[in-house]
């Protein structure tokens, strides 16, 4: 296939202890380490491996967000992607609007495969990939832990609640990456230097002709309630009686 499109979302690094801003308007990101959403990094790794096997000729990384998301796209380029597209918007996107932006990019780029992370670790929505497949009218294979391409089809092993499910899908399609699909590579030093010279195009969101979905407004963020201190019980009988006391049994 000619091209694989990979979505990279800029999120708070998974090592960071997330804090709610004091005014409750969102999550603190000032001075906080930001990274590529780990599932998106796995998606990119898979795309690069497909390309290295000679089964695709170009990997394009795309992101939607503020201009600071360039940093994550540059990381993607340093990992080995060929070029990058950033759709610039300062507003928080809901999954449907994000899927519509990706659909517009699919129209423009005509990829043979779209690889996304199964979900982003910021809001954990797990919706964009599925919505994109629906908008595109193409097959989807979510929670992929193995992808084998075979000409116009792909055999995808999916991690589902009961175990592993193997499905065959026609390409083009949307595949979303689960944790065990692969282990992303280290960035190579020469590629870090080359990444700067690779093309990174910016498109303003307003120029995309994409209609925002029904607006979802985040009114207030609050940290989770501190868990109340537990009690120790001596035995099962004590546990049953404690649960009964609380009206839980």
């Amino acid at each position: 296939m000619e091209k694989i499109l990979v979505g990279l979302k800029r999120v708070v690094d998974y090592n960071v202890r997330v804090r709610v801003k004091s005014d409750g308007s969102g999550v603190e990101t000032d001075g906080v380490k930001m990274s590529i959403n780990p599932f998106d990094e796995i998606a990119l790794e898979e795309a690069l491996r497909i390309k290295e096997r000679g089964e695709a000729s170009e990997v394009v990384v795309v992101s939607v967000g503020g201009s600071e998301a360039q940093q994550q796209l540059r990381t993607g380029l340093a990992m080995g992607a060929d070029r990058a597209i950033l759709v610039v918007t300062e507003s928080e996107l809901d999954p449907l609007t994000g899927a519509r932006v990706l659909m517009e990019l699919v129209d423009r780029e005509q990829p043979g495969l779209v690889l996304l992370g199964k979900q982003a670790i910021d809001n954990d929505n797990n919706q964009t990939g599925q919505m994109l497949a629906a908008l595109w009218g193409r097959p989807q294979a979510t929670f992929a832990s193995e992808v084998v391409l075979n000409g116009d089809t792909a055999k995808v092993t999916r991690e589902v609640d009961v175990g592993l499910e193997s499905i065959d899908i026609d390409l083009p399609a949307v595949i979303t990456a689960d944790l065990r699909l692969n282990e992303p590579r280290y960035v190579k030093l020469p590629d870090i230097m080359k990444a700067k010279k690779k093309p990174l195009d910016e498109i303003q969101f307003a120029e995309m002709g994409v209609e925002s979905a029904v607006p979802v407004a985040n009114l207030q963020f609050e940290p989770p309630q501190q868990r109340a201190k537990g009690i120790m019980v001596d035995d099962v009988a004590g546990l049953v009686s404690a649960l009964k006391d609380k009206g839980l049994l």
Binding site: Q71, R74, T75, Y186, V187, L189, I192, M193, A195
Partner: peptide, 15 residues
Amino acid sequence: SDEQQLIVDTVRSFV
């Protein structure tokens, strides 16, 4: 710079 940050992140992760 983006390049320096990538060097730092890569070596940190390697270590």
